[in-house]
């Protein structure tokens, strides 16, 4: 058990990795949620062409393994002339990937709204952006809260993939600690515990938000 002692001694490595993970997850969550919400509009559009393009994007993200996608962004961006550091490449990959998922779950929530709700919006003269922002979006968000929570957990787990492009998030730091100090698995236990705590916190917050949302459904 002296493995855990060593881990504790060098806990700032783990904590640093954990902070990195949290920051990456926060950026990816905000980015993918915002872009996903915007992508929902073309996804639900009446124009076949526009809707098809959006659907292709969403379906692609849902079929592609994230690890391969990370490599694609990492190797691919430079050939487009964009020079990002590993960290930024990783965050970009997470955002692009999860935008597809967020858009799909928001689209499903939108499609499940009672038709009359939106009709009333039209009947009272709401149109365009005003209709979307004031009539459609709030009920969609409230009904989608549990699914958004699940997606957040998925983002936390996907963030670990960034270790392969040497981003200093939690798993990467745990591996570093392990190889540097020859601690067999204590550092990974620490990482697993931290991931667990993070996800359980997200689940708790979502449960709380859900209760708030229920009165408004």
């Amino acid at each position: 058990m002296n493995g855990f002692n060593i881990v504790w001694q060098h806990r700032d490595m783990i904590i640093g990795g954990f902070e990195n993970t949290l920051m990456i997850v926060a950026l990816a969550a905000i980015g993918s949620f915002t872009l996903g919400a915007l992508l929902t509009i073309p996804l639900m559009s009446r124009h076949r062409g526009v809707a098809s393009l959006a659907t292709v994007y969403v379906d692609t993200m849902r079929c592609v393994p994230f690890l391969l996608f990370v490599y694609l962004i990492y190797f691919g961006l430079p050939s487009l002339g964009i020079q990002f550091d590993n960290w930024s490449s990783g965050v970009v990959a997470l955002i692009l990937y999860n935008t597809g998922y967020m858009a799909e779950l928001l689209r499903a929530a939108w499609a499940n709204l009672p038709k009359e709700l939106i009709e009333a919006g039209h009947a009272f003269g709401f149109v365009g952006w005003g209709l979307f922002r004031r009539i459609i979006l709030p009920p969609v968000l409230f009904s989608a809260i549990p699914l958004i929570g699940n997606q957040l957990i998925q983002i936390v787990k996907d963030s670990a993939f960034l270790t392969v492009i040497a981003v200093g998030e939690l798993t990467h730091q745990a591996t570093s600690l392990q190889t540097t100090y020859f601690v067999p698995f204590a550092s990974f236990i620490a990482a697993v515990v931290l991931y667990w705590v993070t996800c359980v916190t997200i689940e708790g917050t979502v449960g709380f938000a859900n209760r708030f949302a229920e009165a408004r459904r």
Binding site: V156, S159, A160, T163, T171, P184, V192, Y195, W196
Partner: peptide, 22 residues
């Protein structure tokens, strides 16, 4: 179930691979 569902596959793979010899 609770731990595995919240654990990234990468981390789990590393944990198992390094923990088993112990």
């Amino acid at each position: 179930v609770s731990i595995i569902r919240t654990c990234p596959s990468v981390t789990l793979a590393l944990l198992i691979f390094f923990a088993l010899p112990e």
